[in-house]
Simulated assay, not measured.
Amino acid sequence: MIDFHCHLDLYPNARDVYAGAVKKNAFTWLVTTSPRAYEASSRVLGSDPKVLITPGLHPEIVHDRFHELELLLEQVGPAKAVGEVGLDGSRRFQRSYELQRKVFVSTIERCHQLGGRALSIHSRQAVGDVLSALKSYPDYGVAVLHWFTGTGAELKSAVEAGCWFSIGPAAFNSAAGKALAKKLPKDRVVPESDGPFAQVDGVSVLPWSLDMTAALLSDSWGLPATEVQERLKENSRQLLTLIGYQVDIP
């Protein structure tokens, strides 16, 4: 199993889910929501090569955690990747948008200065600004747009910009999500759970949801589930090579 975007540290039984991910998954990208959370998760959950824990500053909490920006920029230095970061242009978070932009642009600039990092990026109702920031620092690394919900035109722009896309079962909860999944570039899609926040039928998606994602994409793409699963595995190998992270995906 593989998971390119999971808040593994935020499950109520985080230690148990972490142990399950180590046992069941070839690779899990544990994205954190703040620099302090990154420190705590790295300390409490320990270290295993199958789990990549990365520093981040989620746009939804920037209004409370903006003071942690400098710590984030320090943490990016030795990190293989960064996440979760990005922009949220929805009405609920409009008041913090300029602070979000400062955090995101500063992070992209830092990645650019360091020669590039992989980033797991939140882009809800802010795809244009996300792509503009990435374009400003062309050597930032690799962008993985998680749970992409933009328009068809924005998807085309993101594809042209070289972005990757991580998608999980909860993305198929809506008709719009199903329609967008059909248009995703098949050679740049990797699986995610986005658990515990993402839910299906009221239950949090777990990090070992690859089979469920493959089955849902199979319906969207009109391909056998086994073929989709192999495609997701090959995409994952390619993306991990770009990140510079070595794990064996059978």
Rank of each mutant, 00 (worst) to 15 (best):
Q75P: 00
P250C: 05
V203C: 09
V189E: 05
E84N: 01
T151R: 02
G177L: 03
T226M: 12
V105P: 00
V44S: 13
A133I: 08
A126H: 04
A37W: 14
V76P: 06
V142C: 05
G128D: 03
E154P: 01
L30C: 14
L134V: 01
W164S: 11
A181S: 06
V76K: 02
R101N: 08
S236A: 10
D64A: 10
G46Y: 09
R237I: 13
R110C: 14
S157L: 10
A181P: 05
S106D: 13
D48M: 11
D211Q: 00
K182M: 06
V76I: 14
L131V: 06
V105M: 02
A133F: 03
E160Q: 13
N13L: 05
L210T: 14
W164A: 11
D48W: 14
L145M: 09
R124V: 11
G195D: 07
V144E: 02
S209Y: 02
M212T: 12
R36G: 10
S204C: 01
V85P: 03
K102T: 14
R95G: 12
R15D: 15
A198Q: 08
E109K: 15
W208T: 00
G141Y: 07
V144Q: 02
R43N: 14
S204Y: 01
A19H: 11
S41L: 07
F93C: 10
P196Q: 11
S204A: 08
L217G: 06
L223E: 14
I243T: 14
H146Q: 06
L134D: 02
H7P: 10
